[in-house]
């Protein structure tokens, strides 16, 4: 009898597990949304088209199909089988937004990895990028060295280097302003653009730097460099008046808005 009871209880456990598993057509309320997450999309394919040169890519019209060979320089995020990359080849940089990518491939796409990407050239708030893309991983390796664009700040020429790995030398941290309970305050950096975020929330960091003539807003993008990164800590330690060197990717959002990956005290030359 005891054995029979044990068996029944074990059976009930299995039944419980089965009942908890979202069924496909069991009429339960969850059947519709449980599997709504976009199915794993086609990602890595053989792209037969010949890759265009960087100059051809730059010349291509928005919304046209483009094929490029480029190298991953940094990864911003992966979510729901989509990933965003900062890439660059010997001639220029290409931002690849929300490219269908398995988590397994995302792990393989380390900085330097060569990829062939086919997608559509697009622009979002001035940021030129490739969207709705597929890719192949190729043989090859390239890591871009930072291009010093300090002298190009404030010039039209800067946009030609959009998304490139760049450096800025000898810029001075100037105050960022925010409002706290209707009181205007200043700080060397802000969590979120208006100071509404926090370290714990892993908010993006915003700070202003000046070249003596103009002031620019730079960002530590928390998906690229999170609150545990060196650059995040370095920016949190900044004081107004600090003179610093920086490296990062020349991102664009209605104007230049670099995503900074490294901050160090300015070197005196």
């Amino acid at each position: 009898m005891k054995k029979l009871l044990s068996l029944l209880l074990v059976l009930s456990l299995f039944a419980a597990c089965a009942a908890c598993k979202p069924g496909k057509n069991d009429g339960g309320k969850d059947s519709a949304e449980t599997e709504t997450s976009a199915s794993v999309p086609e990602t890595s394919v053989n792209v037969p088209e010949a890759a265009m040169s960087y100059a051809e890519y730059v010349a291509a019209e928005l919304d046209s199909q483009v094929v490029v060979e480029t190298y991953v320089q940094a990864k911003q995020s992966w979510w729901d089988n989509k990933a965003t990359f900062y890439t660059q080849n010997e001639d220029g940089a290409i931002f690849i937004y929300n490219m269908p990518c398995t988590e397994e491939d995302y792990a393989k796409l380390t900085p330097g990895t060569k990829i062939k990407v086919k997608g559509y050239k697009s622009a979002w708030a001035g940021e030129v990028e490739i969207i709705d893309a597929v890719y192949d991983i190729l043989e090859g390796h390239f890591i871009a060295q930072p291009l010093d664009v300090t002298a190009l700040l404030g010039t039209d020429e800067l946009e030609a280097h959009q998304n490139q790995f760049v450096s800025f030398k000898g810029l001075t941290v100037v105050a960022s302003t925010y409002t706290d309970n209707d009181v205007q305050k200043t700080a060397p950096f802000l969590y979120n653009w208006n100071g509404s975020g926090s370290h714990d929330a892993n908010s993006d960091l915003y700070f202003n730097v000046s070249d003596g003539e103009n002031t620019y807003t730079f960002t530590v993008e928390s998906y690229l460099c999170d609150k545990n990164s060196e650059v995040y800590a370095a920016v949190e330690a900044l004081d107004i008046g600090d003179v610093i060197d920086m490296e990062g990717f020349l991102y664009w959002y209605n104007g230049v808005n670099p995503h900074i990956t490294k901050v160090t005290p300015a070197t005196i030359e």
């Binding site: 908890c20 598993k21 979202p22 309320k29 969850d30 949304e33 599997e35 709504t36 729901d80």
Partner: peptide, 17 residues
């Protein structure tokens, strides 16, 4: 926004249990 959509879509899976 993109992540919100993904969360909305995928996490409902947990509702079953």
């Amino acid at each position: 926004f993109a992540i919100l959509l993904a969360i909305t879509a995928s996490l409902t899976a947990f509702a079953a249990c």
